[in-house]
Nucleic acid binder design. Structure first.
Lengths: 138, 138
DNA sequence: CTTGACCCTCTAGCGACTACAGGGTGCATA
DNA sequence: TATGCACCCTGTAGTCGCTAGAGGGTCAAG
């Protein structure tokens, strides 16, 4: 008899919220576990490993569908590693795109803020920079 | 009589989707405009200015609630510019946090990918790096 | 008079959870 | 034995900022 885990213990062990675990079950990332007499979920150590995998992949920013694909791949250990590499590389490129976008945004936002040197809203360069042509004042 | 705009013209002029404009109206970012006999929305040039402002702020990544605050501020032009500056600076710090988080993630993800040098999933370092201790194989 | 582009409202869906509400279970303590 | 409390259950609705679709009405051109 292997030791069993309540959902709370599993949550604590993996740094996941209880509701999140139930949600992963609902969307099919983890299988519905056995139940105790009192209808409590009873997890096995294997579930802990799988959930850790999911959390780690999520922490690295993989979307759920990519996590699902990685889980499927890791289940069939005879397969070629190339698909795994492709998924991860694709994700890396997505992260790079996000960083580039945010960096450009940061530059522009920073320029807008630097233009402000106090005064009233009517003179404010930030507001001015946001509205191209406000016909009421200005 | 000022010239009026249909929602489609307004959308085109501001680079917004029609549905988005209706949604902005629903959440109170723009006031419900007058209607034509056929129940079409009839916008005025002032609406165009306001929507341009909203779009520009959104493009800079301001969340809706901050856009709302900026709009309120820009409506009262006698007020001190400091609040505007505070909102923008706060948002800039949020953007910086996001960039820092993504950059850290990128570093880690990149390291994981570099460790892969082909072979089967069983030998894959990417999968290995994701799962800390899979008791089935390894 | 018909076609087609536009407009209307209302509802549901996206991703990835999070937060209740309204109950049941299990264990320790008085 | 009773009671309290921490934990668990299901189900639903909310988050953010839209987006997509169903099922219809309106308007101008040909």
């Amino acid at each position: 008899m292997v030791e069993k885990l309540t959902i709370g213990k599993l949550a604590e062990a993996t740094g996941t919220k209880v509701e999140t675990i139930r949600w992963y079950e609902k969307v099919g990332l983890i299988a519905p576990p056995a139940r105790t007499g009192g209808n409590y979920r009873a997890y096995l150590p294997g579930d802990l490993a799988r959930l850790s995998f999911i959390r780690r992949a999520r922490d690295l920013g993989f979307p759920i569908e990519q996590v699902r694909a990685l889980l499927d791949l890791s289940d069939d250990r005879t397969r070629d590693c190339a698909t795994v590499d492709r998924i991860a590389t694709e994700h890396l490129r997505e992260v790079d795109r996000k960083i580039a976008g945010l960096t450009a945004l940061r530059r522009e936002l920073s320029a807008v803020i630097l233009s402000c040197d106090g005064g009233t809203v009517a003179q404010c360069r930030i507001i001015e920079a946001l509205g191209p042509a406000d016909p009421i004042a200005c």
